[in-house]
Design a protein around this nucleic acid. Structure first.
Lengths: 338, 338
DNA sequence: CTGAAAGCGCTTACAG
DNA sequence: CTGAAAGCGCTTACAG
């Protein structure tokens, strides 16, 4: 059994106290530079590694943060949030923090069971990644640790949030269609389904407003039912010349639908997506879409949360992260057909 | 500042010692059932939550395990390992354990930098998820904690591993093609690229051997270069009637290739994949493929590692997890063309 | 510049 | 059945 090397072991070998060793290794004041150097060197030689658990206990910090993702966002194709979790992990690294993933099961969400890592006091704060039910949000508010919503927000709660600027990005990509001469522009998405679909819709609408283009109900195409399950889309009788889709996946399906009905994309109908995920480049033609800056979102979330951990009274409100348009081949100037 | 409730707080309110409270809450012997009950109830009322860090320190266990994934496996489309990580997380849950993700950067892998969670003593063991370079494996062996390879193995090291039974699954799916009357069967994959491509190839070969079908070099189609970057595949002059592909993604590309050269799938050429990922159902026709049982792999890996943590001398060797064939529409009986 | 003391909140022997 | 003592390995005041 190889016992672990502790501060005390080093102290004994050096003939100093463990307090001095602790100070030296943490570059604190009160130890001569020369002694510090010698201590560090010996620590290295002896293969000393700090026992962070002991440090944690003393300081009352775990150096972990919890990332909670509702189960329904981690299905077959929905790996998006896992990717964000990975980026959170990486953003935590330089701070000596680690991220603990907690998948919130549908059952626990319904029964309002808080994550075990909360009961175990294993984390200093929480990032809630992905829309959670209202009642569960209220339950979460009982937890005393700092928390942050990522990729969604809730109007009834004053928990800080970091989201993509869905509104503005949709506004911009719709502007782009208008610049390409389009006047008859549809939107694809269930407006009552999620806040991001809704916000993207409003950005689309703002662009129409600004360009004095009337909103046309029949060009709003539903793509999913109340539960979020995708449904077969119905193309309008009187077709627009372009569609703004709420996500690439649905844009991909729309393109298939259009083709099956004899429309050419983009010659007869332009299509833009949102997310820049696998579906963007699986679609023929490749989709012009909005790339969400997930590394930036992860960064911002991590910074904000760590700030809140050290200064609990800190508030950030609703932070919006910009995306950027990726131009590909699914848009043609209106009127031109080649 | 709401101070945390500790064992002592409960003890004082009850007029007993904190030792008794600890025993009661942990259902240990030495406390009358009646007192136990009263203590538990009071703890509940007071909203007591254990300080797991303190428990950790006392026991010398962190109740965390580290999951190390090389960066190159977490690209755009490669979310497979993140999914497995999620399943590991969920499998750890009932044991009161949590998984800490560490993405191993290409640079750290090259410079042989061990994960920070190792230096911080933040985990009790490691799951290495995805092929890691030889030198890095050797570096890892210096870590005293129990470790386990997941989804790969290394012949030069005696670290326990859990992998899909690539060999057997490929053998089975090839058998299926033979049962459908195919005799001219090709294999798609770079045989020198990864051990799973190689093992799948050998399973394919075993099936041929068993059915006395000679191996035909020209039907082995390369799909990637040394670095693993997919390349444009070249169809053989003299075409087989079926292809076993080393993964769904490549099967998807092969189907596109076949179609572009005028072959109908499966009428002119059958194709089977491996993995049952997004590409399996994105392909037209949907692919007959092998589903890897990742929940089972995660389960097995977690069980084995936790056993090793409590009994460090425990050895499991190379554990193989069975997959299952998913039958879809990319295979036709040889000879039949409708 | 250096160190003795105290304490973070548990649990594990051990004594009664 | 119950509890006083000790200790896990650090760090933070405080005293010299």
């Amino acid at each position: 059994m190889n016992k672990h090397i502790t501060l005390r072991d080093i102290a004994e070998r050096m003939g100093v106290s463990s307090v001095t060793v602790s100070k030296a290794l943490n570059d604190k004041e009160g130890v001569s530079d020369e002694l510090k150097e010698r201590i560090k060197q010996l620590a290295d030689e002896m293969g000393y590694r700090i026992n962070k658990v002991a440090k944690s206990m003393k300081e009352g910090l775990t150096y972990n943060i919890g990332v909670v993702i509702p189960e329904r966002f981690t299905g077959q194709t929905q790996s998006f949030y896992l990717k964000v979790y990975q980026q959170i992990s990486m953003a935590l690294e330089p701070y000596g923090y680690d991220g603990i993933l907690h998948i919130l099961s549908a059952e626990d969400e319904k029964l309002l069971h808080l994550p075990r890592i909360y009961y175990d006091r294993k984390v200093d704060g929480f990032i809630l990644l992905g829309q959670i039910s209202k009642p569960y949000i209220e339950a979460l508010e009982h937890m005393e640790q700092p928390k942050l919503f990522l990729d969604f927000y809730d109007e009834h709660s004053d928990i800080d949030s970091v989201t993509t600027d869905n509104f503005y990005c949709a506004y911009e990509i719709t502007n782009y269609l208008v610049q390409q001469g389009h006047r008859k522009i549809g939107y694809v998405g269930n407006l009552y389904s999620t806040s991001s679909i809704q916000d993207r819709y409003l950005g689309y609408y703002k662009s129409l407003l600004e360009h004095r283009i009337p909103l046309n109900d029949r060009w709003i195409v539903n793509d999913r039912d109340e539960e979020g399950t995708l449904i077969d889309m119905e193309l309008p009788e009187d077709m627009p010349t372009a569609f703004v889709c709420n996500c690439d996946r649905v844009a991909h399906l729309l393109v298939l639908k259009l083709k099956s009905q004899g429309y050419r994309v983009p010659e007869d109908c332009s299509v833009v997506g949102f997310d820049n995920d696998v579906f963007a480049t699986l679609t023929e033609p490749h989709l012009t879409t909005v790339e969400v800056d997930t590394p930036q979102m992860a960064q911002t979330a991590v910074h904000s949360l760590l700030k809140k951990i050290s200064s609990p009274e800190m508030r950030f409100g609703r932070v919006l992260v910009q995306g950027k348009i990726i131009y590909r081949n699914s848009v043609k100037k209106a009127g031109s057909t080649d």
